[in-house]
Design a binder for these strands. Structure first.
Lengths: 183, 183
DNA sequence: ACGGGCATGTAAGCGGTTACATGATTCG
DNA sequence: CGAATCATGTAACCGCTTACATGCCCGT
């Protein structure tokens, strides 16, 4: 099952033509949170897609820009992906991976780590809440793609909110053990 | 920044010696949810780690098993990882990636997709809740590694719970749009 | 003029998947 | 005895990262 990069690019191009640089930037500012990509990856994939005529290239943009546009077969391809039901639903996370090995950490180090994690999660949660508010106030325009992004942001806010609460729960658990309240 | 596979293996070996097959199985039953690995990856990494003397090999196990054990330098290595602060906190998810392109879907397809996602998320949430209960009842033993796994399971339950609620929220949003309640 | 961001790429190498391959052991 | 599972690997290939490289254009 091929990576989602291709479909992300086709999805972004569905909003209108853009250069590789544009696409890499837009990946970095929004999609990066759930699927990081690097710019060489974007450029090479665009070339590949052009050779499969999923996109067209107009190399006459200003400042050497190459403007890509989605084709009809590109549109069918992204549609096919969106309606295909074989999704990899794994939630990959190095943070959660570490949790399995908390028992190897010294109490002191673990406590510090948990505080950091909680800090990070709450920051992210409030950040996404703020972005969500801003999107509702139309600060990003009001196209259909913005409405979808709003949904994604809401998911982020809820996820990081849940993780922040979880971190607090773990900290409380630790404390009750140490003070012997559970005896 | 190298992948977490190595540290996962060292972490599992901290509980005691095990074969490559064992380790691959244990990855698949617990760590797979946050970091999938395939068995060739496990075998090759173990060979590499043996050559760096982070683990030792005893090839005289029953049925051709090769039993690996963690060394002192292996232990320091996993400790170093656990206390290093440069974590990649990205929450990779193909499900959430798709959300950005919901606006490209037909209402009908989208609604069906959302119902499926909600179904999946709620199933996972209840599944993790059940595992959490079982761990508390000591059905997996009561070693320190089980306590950590319990924390990870709790995170999973909360995460998927939040996602299930989110999916419901999106469905409600869609409905209010269609029936014109927002007018 | 020059520093910084715009814009595109190449190349090496690692991480990871998929398919293939092999033998040993247990269970029915 | 045969099927399933245990157990370990190899090889080809793809995805992706990192480092390197180049030229253009804008603002000061």
């Amino acid at each position: 099952m091929r990576s989602v990069l291709r479909y992300g690019l086709l999805g972004l191009l569905s909003e209108g033509p853009a250069s590789g640089y544009d696409l890499a930037q837009r990946f970095k500012t929004s999609l990066n949170a759930v699927w990081p990509v690097s710019h060489p990856q974007v450029y090479t994939e665009l070339v590949k897609m052009a050779s499969e005529s999923l996109v067209t290239v107009d190399p006459s943009g200003t400042r050497g820009r190459k403007v890509y546009a989605i084709t009809a077969s590109g549109k069918t391809e992204v549609q096919r992906w969106l309606t295909s039901s074989d999704i990899d639903r794994t939630l990959r996370s190095e943070s959660l991976f570490r949790v399995f090995f908390f028992w190897l950490m010294k109490n002191e180090d673990l406590h510090q780590h948990l505080e950091q994690e909680k800090q990070y999660f709450t920051t992210q949660a409030t950040r996404y809440q703020a972005i969500g508010k801003a999107k509702e106030n139309g600060e990003y325009g009001m196209g259909p793609s913005v409405a979808s992004a709003r949904l994604a942001v809401e998911a982020g806010a809820r996820l990081y909110g849940a993780l922040a609460e979880w971190a607090q729960w773990v900290i409380d658990n630790e404390d009750s053990k140490e003070t012997g309240q559970g005896r």
